[in-house]
Design a protein around this nucleic acid. Structure first.
Lengths: 121, 121
DNA sequence: CCGCATCCGTTACGATACTG
DNA sequence: CAGTATCGTAACGGATGCGG
């Protein structure tokens, strides 16, 4: 019985940078993590409201992947007013410095080629 | 006449994080940047020697992309002992803090799930 | 409705053979 | 040595359906 989504990456090498990319180096993972850092716990449809317009099947697959890799969990539905929401684990929240550095790079280096870019958020 | 490789990203949103990912958020760009930061100017075949084993067509496409986006340039072949090498621009070198943060995250958070991971490099 | 899963077309990746 | 051509596979993206 093959798993729908692999639970762990195929490590390309022992390099920490490549290994980090093996976990969050796809097109959407860090965008999802960004939403969780900026807004806190977030529901499926709230992720869909983000301006990047991820499609529903991709979102479901990425949430499954991030959960399997211990970066997010479900909010306990019985204990929270917000049902069916996702939140960051410690491991996921620890990505904040990466997002900060990336945001700063983009803001400094991409303004001329992407005039509409926002100053940090 | 359609370009073989688009010269500029399709921006998903005005968010700096998403925009940074639109430039270097693929599977290989930051691995190539890492090699250039660690080793300095690097030739095509030296990139191929990296442990991640990128295939030749992908490497050529990514080098073209990174050049089109101003992150790398060719070393001046007439002035250098090392012909046909690539090097970082200021814009590319400015990604160092991103790689540092990612490397630290991986080293701290992925040791248990990836025992062979190296301590920074 | 909300949270997905399924179907299917399109785009990225990957292994390998090959050329200037 | 530095790529290109070819062709197969995997990821992505839009539309739609379906259970709770």
């Amino acid at each position: 019985m093959e798993p729908v989504v692999a639970s762990t990456p195929q490590w390309r090498s022992p390099c920490p940078i490549a290994s980090g990319l093996d976990v969050v180096g796809d097109k959407w993972s860090l965008v999802i993590i960004r939403d969780l850092i900026v807004h806190g716990p977030r529901t499926y449809s709230e992720f869909l409201d983000a301006p990047e317009k991820i499609s529903t099947n991709i979102l479901a697959a990425r949430l499954k992947w991030l959960h399997a890799n211990g970066l997010i969990t479900h909010v306990d539905a019985t204990r929270s007013a917000r049902n069916n929401a996702y939140q960051l684990t410690e491991r996921g929240a620890a990505l904040r410095p990466v997002l900060d550095a990336l945001g700063r790079w983009s803001h400094q280096e991409l303004i001329d080629v992407h005039p509409g870019i926002l100053s940090i958020d």
